[in-house]
Design a protein around this nucleic acid. Structure first.
Lengths: 149, 149
DNA sequence: TAGGTAAGTAACAGATTTGGTTACAAATGT
DNA sequence: ACATTTGTAACCAAATCTGTTACTTACCTA
């Protein structure tokens, strides 16, 4: 998998830390260790999925469009998948269409992978950004409440 | 994901079709729609994981090292992961280590993803190559029992 | 033992993907 | 007006992936 999912989650967790306070792509990029444009690309995807809202101009930035408890990792997954459809997909073979075995292999694999992907989605749906933030807060053990990079 | 997992599964299903009968990488490549060397690469990985055995020379080829009922898709997954460790892994961010948030983000993400990956593994473990072959057989509805490409 | 067959493996090429970067237009507040 | 920040397009270097060639090693058979 690419880093997009992880970075997107990172961004959302950061935004959850500053409720009501727009955060610039510069700050987010600094925290996630990437480039502001990369962040803005991801924010575009997250915005299209209705997870964040952005404001241009002075004092602008991005904030969560919903309470962090209402955003699950599955939402993030779906948002990223919308932009890049084969994130968890089983890589398609190009089986020999002349061979019957090859011809039905792809659909059979897809069907068998269905439950596996579904199971993963269920697990992702069980985790909210609020929970993620809480986890982070626990690990931080009080210091560095939100800023510092 | 890359096509390796799918092709490897394809290969195993094909081998399950010809029990006790060594199949050459040429034949397997023909069925999977790829190059014999690609197949041999994958067979090397599968062999290292103890899923297949190969014989060189005339009449040689590869056959399953165990009954297809004793090989799960999780075995395949693990074999491929052995050779390429981050198949389903959550892509690692390179978060700003100066920021406390960045520092704990990676391990927190890993922990949260744990159950999701575990769920997927459980689902994969529930499907055996024998079941896969049976599925294929049903779809083929009788014609093309094993060869033809 | 000679020759053929097939696996094992290294090396390389072309295509694709990915993340980072620059550049610039559009919007928004001061 | 002017500074700030998002929104995008374009491009680059690096990595990755699949296919391919070439060659060695092992094994079987005539």
């Amino acid at each position: 998998m690419n880093t997009r999912f992880a970075v997107a989650t990172h961004i959302l967790a950061y935004l959850a830390h500053s409720p009501g306070q727009p955060v610039s792509s510069d700050v987010l990029a600094g925290s996630a260790g990437t480039h502001p444009v990369v962040v803005r690309r991801l924010l575009g995807t997250l915005g299209a999925a209705g997870l964040v809202r952005s404001q241009r101009g002075t004092g602008g930035g991005t904030l969560l469009a919903r309470p962090p408890a209402d955003i699950s990792l599955l939402d993030v997954y779906r948002a990223m998948q919308q932009a890049e459809p084969d994130l968890f997909q089983v890589g398609s073979t190009t089986p020999n269409q002349a061979c019957d075995l090859g011809r039905v292999m792809q659909q059979t694999l897809d069907q068998l992978f269905g439950p596996a992907i579904e199971a993963m989605c269920t697990a992702l749906a069980a985790v909210s950004v609020a929970q993620l933030q809480q986890q982070l807060h626990q690990r931080l053990a009080g210091r560095c409440p939100q800023s510092s990079a």
